[in-house]
Amino acid sequence: MALEHEDVRRAAHLARLSLNDDEAAHYADDIRRILEMVDRLQAVDTQGVAPLAHPLDSTQRLRADEVTEGDERERFQRCAPAVEDGLYLVPRVVE
């Protein structure tokens, strides 16, 4: 599957990474070659093979519905870039 320059720009936008044209071209070149390597997968017959998401065949454990965490806002917000009145601040979100 050929990778277009536009695919990289689109991925960069979805992933919220700013890229200039040179960077986009550079990544497109790398990623094209990586995907060529990955394309070896296409030659394998996987008909009827169930996808494997986790290496062990275990199932989800369930947690009892109990409140175990208290208010640690002060501590957690010490590493925040911008807070006011306990809120995280971001540039204005327009709905």
Binding site: V38, Q42, T46, V49, P51, P55
Partner: peptide, 17 residues
Amino acid sequence: FFDAYYKKAQQVRRLIR
């Protein structure tokens, strides 16, 4: 692209295991 890449890779992952 999901089926061609991700799903395929997970199927191959089972074969590898």
